[in-house]
Design a protein around this nucleic acid. Structure first.
Lengths: 203, 203
DNA sequence: GTCTATACCGCGATAGAC
DNA sequence: GTCTATCGCGGTATAGAC
């Protein structure tokens, strides 16, 4: 009969597609600000504008919420690095990496902070998965340094240490850089590239 | 009368002098391992071997316990730096700072970790006090860089950025260095000094 | 100085109405 | 899909005996 509409949900493709991301965004913000252990599911729910119980429609538990945020961040980092245009010499690749790292991390301060600070709050298995992704990223920088050694354009006493030293230095930008501060991000990139290049004996 | 002893405490200068430090040591260890927010006063008490209530004889509350640990660490850092033997040229002072920073921090991994990771768990007033001490330490490195610029032995585009970059790089050693690993601390110091010197254009 | 006991609160997670 | 209500637990901190 004409008066009977199909029994579809009242809001087709309902709000789960929008509430899910909002839950993750609120969790990321709060975890970054106060720390995973200090943030309650009730706080996250309040930020989203739902009741605490409703969160469990979008995550099996609090731990999975943390892991998903960190995994998504690391995957995005690896994917973005993969998408960089190809580059010939080691020095060019190192400059590309330096500028990419600073720019990518500065645009995702909360995720970077959480992914580093909350490692110890991951379950053993989850920790292993994130660590492997972090190591994969480090390996990409080390490969550049090794290539530079091989072609003679770089000089480092230990590629592993240099890798860790450079990443620590570059990620450190996130502890102080704020948009609209004394220096533009492009300027910061330039200054750091200068220090990086000289630290590894590149020209 | 001879049989009546003076009403002194049964254990003269009783155990508070030994239990207090043990409370702080246990708190430091647990805060470093699991994070301030994730550690309960009951856990700390269990580690010390007392009941939870007894902790409040040694600290007014959990927050003060964290603040005292961080303040003591920062004060010890500043004092140890003050105690370094005097040094003439900027390059010599920079090498001294580099080696001192690595050595001092490597020997206090828990305190370093807590003092960096738990900043956001400090009350506003406590945070300000710790931040001021951290800035005082950074200023000592920046003074060396400025002196190097003045005497022409160093070349950096921005002393503030170079200061932050170098400290991030040096403190990063703590994330991977373990005693008995592939490299001795003296070797690590040497490799990092090499990178530091070149990064700031020192010879 | 340390203990036991407990007040009081907020936590993560679940059940079932709507 | 979200709500209210609640369970069971563990949190910080305090009171008062010894």
């Amino acid at each position: 009969m004409a008066g009977i509409v199909a029994p579809m949900a009242r809001k087709p493709g309902s709000r789960s597609e929008i509430t899910g991301p909002r839950v993750r965004a609120a969790a990321l913000r709060l975890f970054a600000r106060h720390g995973y252990a200090a943030v309650s599911m009730r706080q996250i729910a309040a930020e989203v504008g739902v009741q605490a119980g409703a969160l469990y429609l979008y995550t099996p538990d609090k731990q999975s919420l943390l892991f998903d945020l960190m995994q998504a961040h690391m995957q995005e980092l690896l994917d973005a690095h993969d998408a960089l245009p190809p580059c010939s010499g080691a020095l060019e690749r190192l400059e590309q990496f330096t500028r990419f790292h600073i720019r990518h991390h500065a645009a995702r301060a909360d995720a970077v902070f959480v992914s580093y600070m909350e490692l110890r709050n991951l379950d053993a298995g989850n920790f292993g998965a994130i660590e492997a992704m972090r190591r994969a990223y480090e390996d990409r920088l080390e490969a550049i340094l090794c290539a530079g050694l091989a072609e003679g354009s770089l000089h480092v006493p230990d590629t592993k240490l240099a890798t860790l030293a450079l990443i620590a230095m570059l990620t450190g930008v996130n502890t102080w850089y704020r948009e609209g501060g004394r220096l533009s991000l492009a300027t910061v990139e330039g200054i750091y590239w200068d220090m990086v290049r000289r630290a590894v004996g590149g020209g």
